[in-house]
Write a protein that binds this DNA or RNA. Structure first.
Lengths: 240, 240
DNA sequence: GCAGACTAATGAGTAATGCTCACCATGTCT
DNA sequence: AGACATGGTGAGCATTACTCATTAGTCTGC
């Protein structure tokens, strides 16, 4: 009773997960608004309604806290992109989808992305972190699309995939810097178009009539099927 | 005589420039070997043969010291590149020269470049620093080469230069990460060839091929939409 | 060659901050 | 009701960028 009488905060015992959730929410706010260095553990604790020492019961260091916060963000963002990708047809469209998705995340959550790009990734242990692995999965999915294009004959097979990856993601990242710094925006749509076009044209085969043919043939078949399905409606509206 | 008798360091008065030089040399060593955060001002001072307070007579903050060190490096490196560029003929060769030069610096001085890329550039005030200006001059020279290509008719004029810049420098930077972290090297020659080829082919004037492409792309999109309409039950769950 | 002024250089001290640890309080189980 | 496991506390530590009053080389004018 003494503590309560003295007006101190009522001590509340919460289940681990709930407390961890509170702390992570507070941390995300403070990290996003101030950046990693300027975010004081004291402020995070205060905002989470606990005392500094409590943070360290659940997270060994401030940096581990950042990593967990970013991990959670990644899972929110990329949980379903593979399913989404599977609904997109055609090499150009599939590539554009992956690039656009990447750019959209940057556009929508610049603070969080700034944390990842400018504060987490430069850290020496980055490649041992789970963030690196999650990122790798994303770039691999993107490169898989390029491989499909090579396999189908649309793309040359003499350009190192690593370079393609670097130009896509390096280019996208470079393009978004201004926005991450809150010093000028960008359009995910326009940028995705431009990057996709540059990549696709850069990878184009020298002689590519065959690739276009196969693509056109496939389209012809699908269109034929679709015409069969939709023909009645179209005619009803006066279309031959 | 007391101080000397006690074995303390003899106090030496040096002209400003000489002292500044000593400090900057020491700072460069410590920054490069430990990174910015881990570099203690105490160690820099010790290595420069002065006491900590002396640093602050010449540099207002640790960060300013870093900036001066990096500025000096930039001047060493890029002092004569414009003269060198003027000796190279042909769009492809000129572009390759600029890309290669950039990659070579990264290759030769990874520690210094890591400082710039990972520690200085993420800083909020980066765009107000002289490093930003120096960098801008370099990218502008590179884009000038692209503009020449457009003017001569070699390149299309419908690709935003900003995207070209981002893909060149973003791509180059992404490509060198492993090397900057001392986790795997790269070849400036091979990489410069690959990037230059991708950019040049990506910027090639559109002929009949491009027209066919855009047509095929449009068809792909329409077909995709129609497939979704005619078979909604198949992808209803996986699709947003 | 000396007084005095100028200022380079010192080093003890400060504030901020990530992190630790011995102890306390609270919900639960027997 | 008492014991136990564990969530929670807050004073305190170590590190480190940065400050400032003081000290002492060095140069000028006589």
């Amino acid at each position: 009773m003494k503590a309560a009488a003295r007006g101190a905060r009522r001590r509340e015992r919460l289940p681990r997960d709930e407390r961890v959730g509170q702390i992570m929410r507070a941390a995300r706010q403070v990290f996003c608004s101030k950046g990693y260095e300027a975010a004081a553990t004291a402020e995070i604790a205060e905002r989470a309604g606990v005392v500094e020492g409590t943070l360290y019961r659940y997270f060994p260091t401030k940096r581990d806290l950042l990593i967990k916060v970013v991990e959670q963000f990644y899972e929110e963002i990329f949980s379903d992109y593979e399913a989404q990708l599977s609904g997109v047809r055609g090499t150009w469209n599939r590539l554009r989808f992956m690039i656009w998705k990447h750019l959209s995340v940057m556009h929508k959550d610049p603070d969080m992305c700034r944390l990842i790009v400018h504060e987490l990734r430069p850290w020496p242990q980055y490649r041992q972190s789970s963030i690196f692995t999650l990122n790798q999965r994303y770039t691999q999915s993107t490169l898989a699309v390029v491989r499909e294009g090579i396999a189908s004959g649309e793309f040359r097979d003499d350009v190192p995939l690593r370079i393609v990856r670097d130009m896509i993601f390096g280019g996208a990242e470079h393009h978004t810097w201004g926005h991450l710094r809150d010093e000028g925006g960008f359009s995910p749509d326009t940028a995705a178009d431009a990057i996709t076009n540059m990549i696709c044209q850069g990878l184009q085969r020298a002689g590519r009539a065959a690739a276009v043919d196969s693509s056109v043939n496939r389209l012809e078949r699908v269109v034929q099927r679709l015409e069969g399905l939709t023909a009645p409606q179209q005619r009803a509206r006066g279309n031959p």
